[in-house]
């Protein structure tokens, strides 16, 4: 009860903002298309959920992010560890990383559209390419941060060179790696929504553009808030996962 009321107090500013929105929208100061009342947005959300538009497009979007992100994490982590463990990989790959790191990832949207069209493939490739480098850097920096006395301890406790790499360097890299993946997660939503807004025929971003173009602004606001909420929720779930994985740090 006490925690409930303290959580209420903590998040009450959000409630105040929502109330202010409702009052401003109903006051007639703004046109109802520019600022539909929250109650109407909620009604529009229920409609979209009932007719299946929301579920179908959400699934399409989640599949694209999930697949793109999974590939980015897999390839990115392998590259990062290869660079950390093997000097040759580091020498060859670090200039490539240096070259592509400053590229604003959104510039890849037209290229992947050019290569793979407007469908799932181009979004997955975009998210994979765009989110890979933070994971690579996380794995690389994490592996390099492994304390040499930990490695030496493992060796003097009888572990072979390879075994001590596995037992010491990989776990040492986990915190930085997870950090890199968190950046990649945030980036994946940005790239997903941007590319769906700009070049797509399916997905939540497309639905936002479609509803906006049709002038059904309550629906547009409903989907915008849904996407924002999904992004927020994904980050919170990931954070809880990280906290459990890194429980040994506290």
């Amino acid at each position: 009860m006490n925690t409930l009321s303290s959580a209420f107090l903590r998040y009450s500013p959000l409630l105040i903002l929502a109330l202010a929105w409702e009052v401003a929208a109903r006051s007639g100061l703004f046109s109802s298309s520019a600022l539909p009342p929250i109650s109407k947005i909620a009604a529009a959300w229920v409609d979209l959920a009932r007719n299946g538009d929301l579920a179908g497009n959400t699934l399409a979007s989640l599949w694209r992010t999930g697949a793109g992100l999974a590939l980015a994490i897999l390839i990115g982590a392998i590259l990062g560890f290869a660079m950390a463990f093997w000097r040759g990989a580091e020498t060859a790959l670090s200039p490539v990383v240096e070259l592509f790191y400053p590229l604003p990832k959104s510039a890849l949207i037209p290229v992947t559209a050019l290569w793979l069209g407007f469908g799932d493939g181009s979004k997955i490739l975009l998210i994979c390419m765009g989110c890979m480098l933070p994971v690579t850097m996380g794995a690389f920096n994490g592996a390099l941060s492994a304390d040499r006395t930990l490695l030496w301890s493992a060796r003097s406790l009888g572990a072979s060179r390879l075994r001590s790499m596995w037992d010491v360097v990989l776990p040492s890299a986990v915190p930085e790696l997870l950090n890199g993946i968190r950046t990649a997660l945030a980036l994946s939503f940005v790239l997903l929504v941007s590319s769906e807004l700009i070049v797509s025929r399916e997905g939540l971003g497309y639905l936002i553009g479609f509803l906006g173009a049709n002038g059904t602004y309550e629906g547009m606001f409903a989907v915008v808030l849904t996407v924002a909420f999904i992004g927020f929720l994904a980050d919170r779930i990931y954070e809880a996962f990280v906290r459990r994985t890194l429980a040994w740090r506290e």
Partner: peptide, 11 residues
Amino acid sequence: FPMPKITFLPV
């Protein structure tokens, strides 16, 4: 902070 702010672009 964790929201994809870019969604608000149409708004």
